[in-house]
Design a protein around this nucleic acid. Structure first.
Lengths: 250, 250
DNA sequence: GCTAGTGCACTGGTCGGACCAGTAGGCTAC
DNA sequence: GTAGCCTACTGGTCCGACCAGTGCACTAGC
């Protein structure tokens, strides 16, 4: 009964075809980071379209973080090395549209950080362990300076752990979600009256986590890191969201 | 010694200012999904720029998934509800550029799915439990039909678990990473000679996981789900990446 | 000889105008 | 009252133009 299966003809914009072709070239490795695209005027010849169309395609590619163009650059747009900037942008948008609550974000960080610690405890090298040591030393020193410095050292520690997990997706998501969370609460933390006590407590917690990582006890490291994160942020999470956070603690 | 601190003047393109303004309007809620932007010709008046500039801004907004324009639509571009499409796109790019290996992706799925199961075991409602039951029944029925149907039912189960976790970030990331993984391996699974045995085994594993969720045993559900995912995909992961996956298993 | 300075050719960013195919909704003819 | 046409408008694409900025070759000076 069914005749030849006709598929709906999807009209494809000219600039989309260009985006697809360039994207394909980059993803297939035909174009490597650092290499240059031809100039817009060359591209309009190669694709047989007008410059407006070429430019719209380049805008899309730039929005996706694949290329970057600079006015006056005689070499054309530059193919960018991958950066999680686009990922970061869309996740930030997601959070800002208020689709995501602070509780969900912190909960996600607890999940990611715990997993990173679990993996780090089992996969870390001695150099990575040294990095974590250095980061905690930095936290201790920075606590005397102020919250901003402390926060930076704190980030360095978590980054070292994430790197030790050897999972780039964990690293990227950790980075993205953390910066969103900090954007939401860093002002409140900096203004907190008892932030010195908070920082001192946090250093102690981090030392315990590191000890577990050093000992190779992944489960302990994961549990401690969850608890550390919980204690640090629970005060800023609305009361009705806290039970969901506690559901992650044993 | 240091005079007044001058910051470098960052030249901002006209179209970027437009993107920022519209983005702000959407993220602040001044523009809601479903609402329409003025026509391009109106916008060029409001922003005092040419239509090319307006269009470049719209291309960027469209690439970020915030608006969508249709040729001939007399009402102007439509503000889109948030969709993880942009997130998906950038993560897919990341995977295609080979920044992400299959091992890392599967490992990330293990982390997400285990967390979703842990939370689901502790937060699920009876309706959600019924959804999971239905999904497993669907898997059993679909296994007779073929791999595609089975895969769809499998997805339905994991989605139900993710929803029960009550964390939208987990749901979204689960969805995105899963579709990338499936894009990489679904062909191989469909072609596997022993896929019937694989499906039957997988159903059994899922039933065990669901039993743990039903019993409220979050730790068990998490461990079983990690193991299930590992067993299902380990055959497609390069041998040298497998130890990292096993590091997630107790 | 080499360096410092200049000029040029070309770039991307923006503008304005033009045409086309498509759509929605009002209007007309039945 | 309804079916079908008409029109005003849309977004997609093209063209040509101008500007400010950049890199490089060339030149003038040491």
């Amino acid at each position: 009964m069914s005749g030849p299966r006709f598929e709906p003809v999807r009209t494809v914009r000219a600039y989309e075809r260009i985006v697809e072709q360039v994207e394909e070239a980059i993803e297939s490795g035909a174009l490597c980071p650092g290499e240059r695209l031809p100039s817009e005027r060359d591209l309009m010849g190669q694709f047989s379209v007008s410059r407006s169309t070429v430019r719209e395609a380049l805008r899309v590619l730039q929005a996706r973080g694949l290329v970057r163009s600079r006015p006056g650059d005689p070499h054309g747009a530059e193919v960018q090395p991958f950066s999680p900037a686009a990922l970061h942008k869309s996740m930030t948008t997601l959070a800002r549209v208020d689709e995501l609550s602070l509780g969900e974000l912190v909960q996600f960080r607890m999940v990611l950080d715990a997993s990173a610690n679990l993996l780090a405890a089992r996969l870390r090298t001695d150099e990575q362990l040294a990095e974590m040591d250095a980061a905690i030393a930095g936290m201790r020193a920075a606590a005397e300076v102020g919250y901003d410095a402390f926060s930076a050292a704190d980030i360095a520690f978590h980054d070292a752990v994430a790197r030790a997990s050897r999972n780039k997706l964990i690293q990227i998501c950790t980075d993205v979600v953390r910066s969103i969370v900090l954007g939401l609460v860093s002002g409140k933390i900096a203004a907190a009256a008892d932030r010195e006590a908070l920082m001192r407590q946090s250093i102690g917690h981090h030392e315990e986590v590191l000890a577990a990582v050093r000992a190779g006890d992944g489960l302990l490291a994961a549990r401690l890191s969850r608890q550390t994160m919980y204690d640090y942020y629970v005060g800023y999470v609305p009361v009705d969201e806290r039970p969901a956070l506690r559901a992650l603690l044993e």
